[in-house]
Structures are given as C-alpha cells and as structure tokens.
C-alpha cells in the first residue's frame, strides 16, 4: 500500500495535476465570465473542439505555434459572438442555442479537418509546445519542477486566475459584467449597455475557451482527434457551479477535478488491473455530479442567468 502511495504522490503527479488543470482553468474562467454576465454558454464543448482544430491546423500549415494559439483564440471569440448574437441580441433560449452552437461547431470541426487533412491512417501531428523552465523558481524542490517547468500556456493559465479576479472585482468593466448578470434593469438605468456588456463577456469567454482548445491540441496531445475535448467542456460548466461563479474558487475546482483525474490515471497505471479502466474514466464525471449535488443547494447563481434582456419589456 505504501509503495502504491509513494508511486502516486511524486513530482510527476503534481506536474500532471497542473497540466490537466490548465485547459479546465481556461474553460472554467471563460464560462464564468459568460455566466456572470447572465449568459449560460453550453456551446463550450463544441467551441473548444473547433478551436483545438483551427489552432492545430494553423500551426500545422504555418509552423508557428503562437499563430495557432492566436487563430484558436480568434475562433473562440467568433463563436462566442455567434452565441451572443442568438442569446443576447435575439434573446433565444440559452440552453437550446448552446446545444446548437456545440453541434454546429463540432460538425464544422470534423468537416474542415477532414477537408484539409483527408483520411489518414496515422493522424498528422505537430511539434507542440515544449516545457519552459523558469530560472531559479524551477530549482525549488518538488514545487519547482512540478509548477515552474511547464508549457508557456500553463503559466498563462496561472496568471489568468488573479487577472480574471482583478478584472471582475476591481475594474469598471467587471462591475458592469456583474451588474448585467445580477440586475440588468438597474444596470440599464445606470447607463450600462446590457447588450454590449453581455456581448463582450461572452466573447471574452470564447477567447478563454479558445486557449483551452489550443492547449489540448498543441501542448497536451500535439494532434487533433475527434475525442480531443471528450466532455471537458461539460465538466467546466459544472466546475463553475462548484466554484460558485468566483474566479479563485472556479480555478480551485479545476485543480480539484484535475487531482481526481490525475489520481484515476495513476490508479489505472499502478496495477489495479482487476478493475476495468473505464471505471476510472467515469470517476471524474461521477465526482463532478456528486460535487454539484453537494454544492448546488447553497449555490447562488447570477440572478439574471438564462434571462434575456429586452429594454422595451418592463
């Protein structure tokens, strides 16, 4: 038992948690911004997949990783704008539009990928992001190699958390986002454009989802496959609830989920062979459902979540 324990908790394990948490942190922060402005974005799963595809393709064709990241982010912003067009400008059902955006984006990702790369027996891959040790900090025992010897996108995710908190709680725009999510009527009276603010928040959310997708196809797997996202978008939506719509707590939720996921990966590898590996694969999803059941009773969602705003209807 001790040997298994030691094998599980080591530097590699901590590093794995950080790596698994990174796309989830981007996605969760993106969904959080959208929901704080009052817009549930169920398009996240498809948006992440499409961004993983466009980012991978741009890098594959140009050879530039950062161009790929930029393309993924722009794709995310575009799809965010599309979701906002339907849900904010036209006031359509956020639930059904989100599913529509996911179906559309995933279909488009499959279609364009097959069109560009054809059907190949070995899927094309790229030389993805390499680890970038930070001088001095990466020499700290245990923590150094786990946290400060990672991909550049991991550092961006770590910086994105305090930045998101700052933007949301300490800037006028963040105040507007919270106002249009809690009380759009009052925000409107105070001269804040509800429509514009919601558009901006959903588009910012899309940009973050783009980073999440880019990380998956350009740092974690270095290839695009149809299962590259495989439910991470849905998990991010649950993590926002679990994190009570707060950047710090949401990021913490992503870390906790990553811990469970890394743990199941280790358990799969460490010779618990009599248990089917699928049991471990479903573990993070069951964990998320249970966590939501525990948290949802006290969860206070933004009051105007799911409610479209029409100025003339009072």
């Amino acid at each position: 038992m001790n040997a298994v324990f030691e094998q599980i908790f080591q530097v590699g394990f901590l590093a794995a948690i950080i790596r698994i948490a990174t796309p989830l942190a981007f996605a969760t922060l993106g969904e959080m911004f959208s929901e704080r402005a009052g817009v549930l974005n169920l398009g996240i799963e498809g948006i992440m997949l499409l961004c993983a595809m466009t980012g991978f393709t741009a890098t594959s064709l140009s050879g530039s990783l950062w161009l790929g990241v930029l393309v993924a982010v722009l794709t995310g912003m575009l799809m965010g704008a599309l979701h906002a067009l339907f849900t904010v400008a036209l006031g359509l059902s956020q639930h059904v539009c989100g599913i529509g955006v996911t179906l559309f984006s995933s279909g488009l990702a499959y279609f364009l990928y097959r069109l560009i790369f054809g059907q190949q027996s070995v899927p094309p891959s790229i030389k993805g992001f390499q680890t970038l040790p930070i001088p001095v900090l990466s020499d700290i025992p245990v923590l150094g190699p786990a946290v400060f010897n990672q991909f550049a996108l991991v550092y961006m995710a770590i910086l994105a958390i305090p930045l998101a908190a700052f933007v949301l709680y300490r800037t006028p725009w963040g105040l507007s986002v919270r106002m249009v999510g809690e009380n759009p009527r009052a925000a409107d009276s105070a001269g804040v454009s509800v429509i514009a603010t919601r558009f901006q928040a959903v588009i910012l959310g899309g940009a973050l989802m783009g980073l999440a997708g880019a990380f998956l196809s350009m740092a974690q797997f270095n290839a695009f496959t149809f299962g590259v996202v495989s439910g991470r978008g849905w998990v991010a939506i649950a993590l926002v609830v679990f994190g009570r719509w707060d950047p710090w707590r949401s990021a913490g939720a992503a870390l906790l989920f990553a811990f469970v996921d890394a743990l199941q990966l280790r358990m799969q590898a460490s010779g618990l062979g009599h248990i089917p590996y699928e049991a471990f694969l479903m573990l993070p999803f069951i964990f998320t459902i249970v966590a939501m059941a525990v948290m949802s009773r006290n969860a206070v969602a933004p009051s105007a979540l799911l409610k479209p705003f029409r100025r003339e209807e009072r």
Binding site: L103, F104, G107, Y110
Partner: peptide, 17 residues
C-alpha cells in the same frame, strides 16, 4: 466529407430557433 450532415444538424437547430 460526410461530416456535412453534422454541420447541417447544428445549423438546422440554430436556424429553427
């Protein structure tokens, strides 16, 4: 690519909304 049918499904849902 036959994946056109997936795009058609998503587009049809959004167009219907």
């Amino acid at each position: 690519p036959a994946f056109l049918s997936d795009v058609i499904q998503g587009t049809a849902l959004l167009a219907m909304l």
